[in-house]
């Protein structure tokens, strides 16, 4: 199952290595990872999307992360009401003949063209990873020259529906 996990860490040198090294040692598969500063100086937040086999593996992952000295907080926010955002930059072939057709795809996704040359445009799109996936699929037939994605970052919404499930001993 795919899980979205956030960790708050002390921004010590090597902390990213420590966390990803742990995931590697314990054989977890990272789909994406984002890191950045938070509102507090010296504190960073990482957001991972990982694949885990089952509940027990997930519990292991959370506990092993929590065990790291530089990790302050670990949350599995998958089942909460969350906002998830990712940004992608896509270079797509767009000779004049198809340009307006491409524009008609870009528009509903609220993507923006941020660079243009004779036959290629660069598009920026943000949204949850599913939306980005869909957008890429639609552009594929025109010929994607280059693609880069930031990976997902996420927040828990201020208002939650029901209390999320708690781990028995955490």
């Amino acid at each position: 199952m795919k899980r979205v996990i956030t960790t708050t860490v002390i921004n010590q040198s090597g902390v990213l290595n420590r966390v990803t090294g742990l995931l590697m040692k314990r054989q977890f598969n990272i789909e994406s990872i984002t890191v950045g500063h938070t509102e507090k100086a010296g504190i960073s937040k990482m957001t991972f999307v990982v694949h885990v086999e089952d509940q027990r593996k997930l519990e292991q992952l959370l506990k092993q992360l929590q065990k790291q000295i530089d990790v302050l907080k670990v949350n599995d926010i998958t089942d909460k009401a969350i906002v998830t955002r990712e940004l992608a930059l896509i270079k797509v072939l767009s000779p004049p003949g198809v340009r307006s057709e491409i524009n008609s795809i870009i528009e509903p996704f609220r993507a923006t063209v941020i660079d243009m040359s004779k036959n290629v445009i660069t598009v920026q799109v943000t949204g949850d990873p599913g939306k980005i996936e869909a957008f890429i699929d639609l552009l594929k037939p025109y010929g994607i020259k280059e693609l880069t994605r930031t990976g997902a970052t996420a927040f828990v919404r201020e208002t939650q529906k029901a209390p999320a499930q708690q781990l028995s001993i955490l």
């Binding site: 027990r56 519990e59 292991q60 506990k63 092993q64 929590q66 065990k67 001993i169």
Partner: peptide
């Protein structure tokens, strides 16, 4: 170590 509990064997009373 909380990470040892439930790692290998299912635990009823952790």
């Amino acid at each position: 170590d909380p990470a040892e509990i439930g790692k290998n064997v299912h635990t009823d009373i952790p």
